[in-house]
Amino acid sequence: MANNHEFAIIEEVRGGNADHYRLLVERYHVGLVQHLFNITRDGPSAEDLAQEAFIKAYEKLGQYNPDYAFSTWLYKIADNMAYRQLQQMKPSSDIADLQEMLPDDKPAAGEQVDKETDRKVVRQAIDTLPGDYRQVVTLYYFDNCSYEEIAEIIERPIGTVRTWLHRAKDQLRKDLYGRI
């Protein structure tokens, strides 16, 4: 739910005082761009999408429901735009590319693994997930959203969020370790 201060800002903007919208942009732009970057893996695209999301939210501010946080609504708009754009693009990597990067076996304890390489491998594994699973993983692990917030953003029941997250983790284990 939107807090009183935030709701007062939104009412001001709805009343025609557009400059108050800057307060919302300043508050959420870093998190939103970061979130979109984790989806697109491209900085300029993430910024463009974030800007479009802020503009679209401004244009549709009359439809905003104060029962939910403004950030949740904003992320929903941004996610819809981002995943629509991703659907139009070809996938940047596929599972075959990922398998080439993986070590033959699970690294043994004590073995020094380059952390940056490991992060890259995990990111690529996340990128190969189906769109819905990827969205849930990104929101849960990177944006620290709760199940309720994710459910609101992706417009699905909480049970579906839990199921998708569980399946996404299984898929990631399978991709990263070669077995569940």
Partner: peptide
């Protein structure tokens, strides 16, 4: 695996410039 990315300087100003070209809902 999260990658950090900072928005470029002037993002807020550019966004507000675009916002002013549109009508509020």
């Amino acid at each position: 695996a999260q990658q950090d990315y900072e928005p470029s300087p002037g993002f807020v100003d550019r966004t507000m410039e675009e916002v002013h070209k549109h009508k509020v809902g």
